[in-house]
Amino acid sequence: ERVRARYDYEAQNEDELSFKKGDIITVLEKDDGWWKGRNGKEGLFPSNYVEELE
């Protein structure tokens, strides 16, 4: 599954994923509120910062 970033997100910890608004992220795992994904790097990000691609 792929999602698009709705906002910029700056990683707060080294296991998190940074991205810019409009970036496409491949979702690897979904957990409550935090998803694991890849966009060149791999890490956790808040699920409310992304939207599913149509």
Rank of each mutant, 00 (worst) to 15 (best):
Glu1Leu: 15
Glu1Pro: 13
Glu1Thr: 14
Glu1Lys: 12
Glu1Gly: 13
Arg2Leu: 13
Arg2His: 12
Arg2Cys: 13
Arg2Asp: 06
Arg2Lys: 14
Arg2Met: 13
Arg2Ile: 13
Arg2Trp: 06
Val3Trp: 10
Val3Ala: 09
Val3Ile: 05
Val3His: 08
Val3Gln: 03
Arg4Ser: 05
Arg4Ala: 06
Arg4Met: 09
Arg4His: 05
Arg4Asp: 04
Arg4Trp: 00
Ala5Pro: 05
Ala5Ile: 01
Ala5Asp: 04
Arg6Pro: 04
Arg6Trp: 05
Arg6Leu: 15
Arg6Phe: 06
Arg6Thr: 09
Arg6Asn: 08
Arg6Ser: 09
Arg6Ala: 11
Tyr7Pro: 05
Tyr7Phe: 14
Tyr7Asn: 09
Tyr7Trp: 14
Tyr7Ser: 10
Asp8Pro: 08
Asp8Tyr: 01
Asp8Trp: 01
Asp8Ile: 00
Asp8Cys: 07
Asp8Ala: 08
Asp8Glu: 06
Asp8Asn: 07
Tyr9Asp: 04
Tyr9Asn: 05
Tyr9Met: 02
Tyr9His: 06
Tyr9Arg: 04
Tyr9Glu: 03
Tyr9Thr: 05
Tyr9Ser: 03
Glu10Asn: 11
Glu10Met: 11
Glu10Ile: 12
Glu10Gly: 04
Glu10Pro: 03
Glu10Thr: 12
Glu10Val: 13
Glu10Cys: 14
Glu10Ala: 10
Ala11Ile: 02
Ala11Ser: 07
Ala11Pro: 07
Ala11Asn: 02
Ala11Arg: 00
Ala11His: 01
Ala11Tyr: 01
Ala11Cys: 05
Ala11Gln: 05
Gln12Thr: 13
Gln12Lys: 14
Gln12Phe: 07
Gln12His: 09
Gln12Ile: 09
Gln12Trp: 05
Asn13Ile: 04
Asn13Gly: 11
Asn13Pro: 02
Asn13Val: 06
Asn13Tyr: 08
Asn13Met: 07
Asn13Thr: 11
Asn13His: 12
Glu14Ala: 14
Glu14Phe: 09
Glu14Cys: 09
Glu14Asn: 11
Glu14Pro: 15
Asp15Thr: 12
Asp15Arg: 12
Asp15Ser: 12
Asp15Gln: 12
Glu16Phe: 05
Glu16His: 08
Glu16Val: 00
Glu16Tyr: 07
Glu16Ile: 00
Leu17Ser: 01
Leu17Asp: 01
Leu17Lys: 02
Leu17His: 02
Leu17Glu: 01
Leu17Val: 06
Ser18Trp: 01
Ser18His: 04
Ser18Gly: 06
Ser18Val: 01
Phe19Ser: 02
Phe19Lys: 01
Phe19Arg: 00
Lys20Thr: 08
Lys20Val: 09
Lys20Ala: 10
Lys20Met: 10
Lys20Asn: 09
Lys20Asp: 05
Lys20Gly: 06
Lys20Trp: 06
Lys21His: 07
Lys21Trp: 05
Lys21Gly: 06
Lys21Glu: 10
Lys21Ser: 09
Lys21Val: 12
Lys21Ala: 14
Lys21Tyr: 06
Gly22Asp: 08
Gly22Pro: 01
Gly22Ile: 05
Gly22Met: 04
Gly22Ser: 05
Gly22Thr: 02
Gly22Asn: 08
Gly22His: 08
Gly22Ala: 03
Gly22Gln: 03
Asp23Gly: 03
Asp23Thr: 08
Asp23Ser: 07
Asp23Val: 03
Asp23Ile: 02
Asp23Met: 07
Asp23Tyr: 01
Ile24Pro: 00
Ile24Ser: 02
Ile24Met: 09
Ile24Trp: 10
Ile24Asn: 03
Ile24Asp: 01
Ile24Glu: 06
Ile24Phe: 10
Ile25Asp: 02
Ile25Met: 05
Ile25Cys: 03
Ile25Thr: 02
Ile25Asn: 03
Ile25Gly: 01
Ile25Gln: 02
Thr26Trp: 08
Thr26Asn: 08
Thr26Asp: 09
Thr26Arg: 07
Val27Ile: 12
Val27Gln: 01
Val27Met: 04
Val27Tyr: 01
Val27Cys: 04
Val27Asp: 03
Leu28His: 04
Leu28Gln: 05
Leu28Ala: 05
Glu29Val: 11
Glu29Met: 12
Glu29Asp: 13
Glu29Ile: 10
Glu29Ala: 14
Glu29Gly: 12
Glu29Phe: 12
Glu29Pro: 02
Lys30Pro: 03
Lys30Tyr: 07
Lys30Cys: 07
Lys30Met: 07
Lys30Arg: 11
Asp31Lys: 15
Asp31Asn: 15
Asp31Gly: 15
Asp31Ser: 15
Asp31Ile: 15
Asp31Trp: 15
Asp32Leu: 08
Asp32Lys: 11
Asp32His: 08
Asp32Arg: 06
Gly33Val: 13
Gly33Pro: 14
Gly33Gln: 12
Gly33Ser: 10
Gly33Phe: 15
Gly33Asp: 14
Gly33Ala: 10
Trp34Gln: 07
Trp34Gly: 05
Trp34Val: 04
Trp34Ile: 07
Trp34Ala: 04
Trp34Met: 11
Trp34Pro: 00
Trp35Asp: 05
Trp35Gly: 06
Trp35Ile: 09
Trp35Lys: 00
Trp35Leu: 08
Trp35Thr: 07
Lys36Val: 12
Lys36Ala: 05
Lys36Gly: 04
Lys36Leu: 15
Lys36Met: 12
Gly37Glu: 05
Gly37Lys: 00
Gly37Val: 01
Gly37Pro: 04
Arg38Lys: 13
Arg38Gln: 12
Arg38Tyr: 15
Arg38Pro: 04
Arg38Leu: 12
Arg38Gly: 08
Arg38Asn: 13
Asn39Arg: 10
Asn39Gly: 10
Asn39Trp: 10
Asn39Leu: 15
Asn39Gln: 09
Asn39Pro: 01
Gly40Tyr: 09
Gly40Glu: 11
Gly40Pro: 04
Gly40Lys: 09
Gly40Trp: 12
Gly40Asn: 10
Gly40Ile: 12
Gly40His: 12
Lys41Asp: 09
Lys41Asn: 12
Lys41Glu: 10
Lys41Gln: 11
Lys41Ala: 10
Lys41Leu: 10
Lys41Gly: 11
Lys41Trp: 08
Lys41Thr: 12
Glu42Met: 11
Glu42Val: 15
Glu42Pro: 06
Glu42Gln: 09
Glu42Trp: 02
Glu42Gly: 05
Glu42Ser: 10
Glu42Thr: 15
Gly43Arg: 01
Gly43Ser: 01
Gly43Thr: 02
Gly43Lys: 01
Leu44Phe: 15
Leu44Asp: 04
Leu44Glu: 02
Leu44Trp: 15
Leu44His: 11
Leu44Gly: 07
Phe45Tyr: 00
Phe45Ala: 01
Phe45Lys: 01
Phe45Glu: 02
Phe45Arg: 02
Phe45Ile: 06
Phe45Met: 03
Pro46Ala: 04
Pro46Tyr: 04
Pro46Asp: 08
Pro46Asn: 09
Pro46His: 06
Ser47Met: 12
Ser47Gly: 09
Ser47Gln: 09
Ser47Ile: 08
Asn48Val: 10
Asn48Gly: 12
Asn48Phe: 12
Asn48Ser: 15
Asn48Ala: 14
Tyr49Trp: 08
Tyr49Gly: 05
Tyr49Ala: 13
Tyr49Gln: 07
Tyr49Asp: 03
Tyr49Pro: 03
Tyr49Ile: 08
Val50Arg: 00
Val50Glu: 04
Val50Thr: 07
Val50Tyr: 00
Val50Leu: 03
Val50Gln: 02
Val50Gly: 03
Glu51Cys: 08
Glu51Ser: 06
Glu51His: 06
Glu51Asp: 09
Glu51Gly: 05
Glu51Asn: 02
Glu51Trp: 03
Glu51Lys: 01
Glu51Leu: 01
Glu52Ile: 12
Glu52Phe: 12
Glu52Val: 13
Glu52Ser: 15
Glu52Cys: 11
Glu52Trp: 11
Glu52Asn: 13
Leu53Ala: 08
Leu53Thr: 08
Leu53Trp: 11
Leu53Gln: 07
Leu53Val: 11
Leu53His: 07
Glu54Val: 13
Glu54Pro: 13
Glu54Phe: 13
Glu54Cys: 13
Glu54Trp: 11
Glu54Ala: 13
Glu54Lys: 12
Glu54Leu: 12
Glu54Gln: 14
